[in-house]
Simulated scan of single mutants.
Amino acid sequence: MARNALHEIKKSLDGLVGERVLLRANGGRRKTIERFGVLEETYPSVFVVKLDPPDGSFERVSYSYADVLTETVELMLCKEDGNTTKFVVEH
C-alpha cells in the first residue's frame, strides 16, 4: 500500500518538473522552512527543489517521497496569477 502511494507521488511530481513551487518543510525544533523554488528533478527515491536565492546564492534541497506522504514536506504549485495550489496525492 505505502509503496504504491510513494510511486503515485513520484509519478505526480514527474509531471511537475520545471514548475515553480512553494516548499514548506519541517525544519525541526518547531521551525518551519518556507521557500519558493523550482522542482528541478525527480529520482527513484528523492526529488530536488532548486530554491530561490535569498542572498544571491542558489541552494538545492532534496526530500524523499515519504516526506510528502507523511506531510513532513508540503509542496504548493505556484500559478501565474501569484496564487498557490496545494499539491495533493490521493492515497
Rank of each mutant, 00 (worst) to 15 (best):
L23V: 15
V88Q: 00
G15C: 00
I33W: 11
F36P: 06
K86R: 14
R29K: 10
V49D: 08
S45P: 03
M1I: 12
G27E: 09
A2F: 05
S62Q: 12
S45N: 13
L13M: 08
G15D: 05
L6H: 10
R20W: 07
D81Q: 06
D67V: 00
M76R: 12
A2W: 14
R3A: 12
S64A: 02
S62T: 14
V68H: 01
A2M: 13
K10L: 12
L13V: 01
L6F: 11
V17I: 12
E41V: 01
L39A: 02
K50C: 06
L6N: 02
P54D: 07
R3I: 12
R30D: 12
K86G: 10
L75Y: 01
L51E: 06
F47D: 03
Y63S: 03
E19G: 04
T70Q: 01
E74A: 13
T70R: 11
E19S: 08
A66D: 14
L13P: 07
D55W: 03
N83S: 15
G82M: 05
S45T: 15
G18I: 05
R24L: 10
L75M: 06
L75Q: 04
L77T: 00
N83F: 08
F36K: 13
Y63R: 11
K50W: 00
K79W: 06
T85D: 04
H7R: 10
R20M: 01
I9A: 04
A2D: 15
K86D: 10
V68N: 02
G82D: 04
N4T: 13
C78L: 10
E71S: 13
E40A: 11
Y65S: 05
R20A: 12
K50R: 15
R24T: 15
L69F: 08
R60V: 00
L77E: 00
G37N: 09
V48I: 08
K10G: 08
K31S: 12
H91Y: 03
D81R: 08
F87Y: 14
C78N: 03
D67R: 11
V46I: 14
L16V: 01
A2S: 11
L51D: 08
E71L: 00
P54A: 00
R3Y: 14
L69E: 01
R3L: 13
S57H: 10
P54C: 03
V46D: 12
K79C: 01
G28S: 03
G56T: 11
S45K: 14
N83T: 15
E41I: 02
L22G: 04
A66F: 06
Y43N: 13
K31N: 07
D81A: 07
L75N: 04
A5K: 09
P44S: 13
R29E: 15
G18M: 00
N83L: 07
R60Q: 08
G18F: 03
H7M: 10
G18N: 06
M1R: 11
N4C: 02
G28V: 02
L69Y: 13
R24V: 15
D55V: 00
V21Y: 04
L13N: 12
I9R: 07
N26L: 12
R29D: 14
T42S: 08
E90H: 04
L22D: 03
D52W: 01
G15F: 05
L16E: 06
T72I: 05
K31W: 08
R60M: 07
Y65P: 02
V17G: 02
H91T: 15
V89Y: 01
L23Y: 10
S12V: 01
R24E: 14
V21G: 03
G28R: 03
V68Y: 05
G82V: 09
